[in-house]
Each structure stands twice: as structure tokens, then as C-alpha cells.
């Protein structure tokens, strides 16, 4: 008689596993995070949160695909909070109806309205400006993004792949402001001025300026600051030869993208989730972000230090609707292909 012997064993195993699962995921003083950000930026913030509230943070670092995992898990998902970079990914969460409102008084007080969803379905945590870099000796600095597409500057511009989300968001911002025809003209101008085929990451563009391959480069500002503060002398030396320029569009405004967070719709710990988001927009956490990753805080009252404060002062505040940029990504990516900036 094998069967009666087998069943209690199976039950015992199931009970043990369920108990284990309970310990791992359902503890009350815990918040579970799915994030497409990297661990190095968040560790200090999570540690500070646990110290302040006693709530443990269990985080899963998924470079790309956190949104899709959350969607496929549905109601069964253990995730409470999802933290993403790029407005496009935050928009995807809203589009797939995966988030719940996070519109606490703390969030409303800390984060300007243009940096959060009207119903709080996402909240920006940092701002990331996409700026221009030129050699220290360069006399002719572009005041506007449009200047990079001007005639007579052939062979001067470097940027990473035209289909990379950072570039697509910049193109979408332009498209949103000036419409398809002008956007295509601008993108074609950029393509005409390329010093090399779009390639490399953002740091490679800055290195290209240092080595003389490129006269101007486009890159996110925090990479420049990380290079200036790198433990690698070659990166420091390259960045030291390069200056940062904060252009605006002709009618004002510098292109800014965000990283942000949302509360998962089926969060098992909704209170802890909101507490984490409140903490992440607090002065304490915002200061860590600025110091750790050289991103600009969403709070206006957080003091930034040294180089970041100087750069931030250059950046003209721009409240262009981020949701519009997110929606125009596909169109912008298509135009980039048409203009030859992406393949």
C-alpha cells in the first residue's frame, strides 16, 4: 500500500514550502520591490528606509522586464513597489493598469505636479538631463539643441544608437514641441553632422570628445559626473578635458527624463509601499540620490553639492508633459530611422 504513505508526506512537504514562502514574502514588516534600476544606487536608500521605519526591503533587480514580470504575475505578484528608469517604462505601467495611486500629502508636497501622474499612478524620483559636451578649448558652444543640426557642422556630432531610449525620448520631446515635419528636419540635420555612425554608450561619447573624434556629444549628465569622480584615472582625465553645456530648445527648456516609482496594484503590503515612496521623495533619500548617482532630485529644496549644483543651475526648468513624450516614442523612433540616425 504505497498511496496512504505518500499523501501525508506530500502534505507535509506542501505545508513546509508554504510556511517557507510565508516567511520569505508575506512578513508584515516588509516591502517587496521590483526594479529596473541597479543595486548600487538603491542599497543606501533602502538601508536608510529600514533604519527609519523598521520595514525591511526585499528587492529584485531586473534590468529590463520588471514590468512584464509584474503583469504576468497578476494578482499573485509579491511586488509592492516597482522602480523604473525612463518615462516610457513608467508609462507602460499605467498603460497596462499595473499600478495603484500613490498620492499622499507627502508626495504632493515634495514632487512638482509635472513630475508625477495626475492620479499618482507614477511618481518621479529623480530628474536626468540629456546635455551636450564639448572640449574645454571649444569656442562655439551650442545654445540650443537645434544648433547641433545647423548646416556647416558636418563631421562634428557623436551620439549613441538613435534607437536607444535616452535618444528616443529626446527626439520625442522635440516632436511633441514642433511636430513631425520640423522634427524630421532636425533629425536629418543631426544625421548630416555625425562624426561617426551612432555607437557606444554615453560615456563613449564623452571620451570621443576628449580624444578629438567628436566636437560635440550628447549624453546624460550623471555619466559625466561619474567619469569626473571615477576611480579610473583614464575616465577622470577624459572627463576633465570636456565641458558640459546645457542647451535648451529654441523656445526654452532643457530635455529632462526621469526615474520613478509606482505602487503595484495588487501589492500585498500597500501601506509599507506608500511609506517607501514617501521616504524616497524625502529630503534624506533625495540627497542620497544626488550624491550617489549624480541625478538631480525632484525636490526643489534639496541642496546639491559642487559640480551637480553648478550644472543644475544651468538647466532651464522645463515642465513639458512627460506623458506626451512617452506616447510619442514609437513615432519618434520611426522618424529617427527615416532620418538615418537609427537603422
Amino acid at each position: 500500500m504505497k498511496k496512504p504513505y505518500f499523501v501525508p508526506g506530500g502534505r507535509l512537504l506542501a505545508a513546509t514550502l508554504i510556511a517557507l514562502a510565508g516567511m520569505a514574502a508575506a512578513s508584515a514588516d516588509q516591502v517587496n520591490v521590483y526594479t529596473e534600476r541597479q543595486q548600487v544606487f538603491l542599497d543606501d536608500i533602502f538601508a536608510a528606509f529600514t533604519e527609519a521605519t523598521g520595514i525591511e526591503v526585499e528587492a529584485l533587480y531586473i534590468d529590463k522586464g520588471a514590468v512584464e514580470r509584474l503583469a504576468s504575475e497578476g494578482e499573485a505578484s509579491p511586488a509592492d513597489v516597482i522602480i523604473l528608469t525612463d518615462i516610457g517604462r513608467l508609462h507602460e505601467v499605467v498603460k497596462q493598469e499595473l499600478s495603484a495611486p500613490a498620492d499622499s500629502p507627502e508626495v504632493q508636497a515634495a514632487v512638482p505636479a509635472w513630475l508625477r501622474h495626475p492620479q499618482g499612478l507614477w511618481v518621479a524620483l529623480t530628474r536626468r538631463a540629456r546635455l551636450v559636451y564639448a572640449h574645454n578649448d571649444e569656442q562655439q558652444l551650442p545654445a540650443h539643441y537645434e544648433d547641433l543640426a545647423a548646416a556647416g557642422m558636418e563631421g562634428s556630432l557623436c551620439l549613441r544608437s538613435g534607437s536607444h531610449p535616452y535618444n528616443v525620448a529626446l527626439f520625442a520631446a522635440y516632436l511633441d514641441r514642433y511636430g513631425e515635419e520640423k522634427a524630421l528636419g532636425w533629425l536629418s540635420g543631426l544625421n548630416q553632422n555625425l562624426a561617426r555612425e551612432p555607437q557606444g554608450n554615453d560615456r563613449a561619447q564623452i571620451k570621443g570628445v576628449a580624444s578629438g573624434e567628436c566636437r560635440y556629444a550628447i549624453a546624460n549628465s550623471y555619466y559625466y559626473f561619474k567619469m569626473l569622480n571615477s576611480d579610473d584615472s583614464a575616465e577622470r582625465d577624459a572627463a576633465a578635458q570636456v565641458q558640459l553645456v546645457a542647451p535648451t530648445f529654441v523656445d526654452g527648456g532643457t530635455h529632462v527624463n526621469v526615474s520613478g516609482a509606482a505602487i503595484a496594484r495588487h501589492a500585498p503590503h500597500p501601506e509599507a509601499a506608500l511609506a517607501l515612496i514617501n521616504f524616497m521623495v524625502s529630503s534624506q533619500a533625495q540627497k542620497i540620490y544626488a550624491e550617489r548617482n549624480f541625478e538631480m532630485p525632484v525636490r526643489e529644496d534639496v541642496a546639491m553639492t559642487g559640480q551637480l549644483a553648478d550644472a543644475s543651475a544651468l538647466i532651464e526648468s522645463d515642465s513639458q508633459q512627460l506623458a506626451d513624450i512617452a506616447q510619442l516614442r514609437s513615432e519618434a523612433a520611426r522618424l529617427a530611422v527615416e532620418a538615418g540616425l537609427a537603422k
Partner: peptide, 8 residues
């Protein structure tokens, strides 16, 4: 390659 300016 970038260090010696031949990334392209």
C-alpha cells in the same frame, strides 16, 4: 579602443 581614440 576609446582610450586611444579609435572606437569607431
Amino acid at each position: 579602443a576609446d582610450r586611444i581614440g579609435i572606437g569607431f
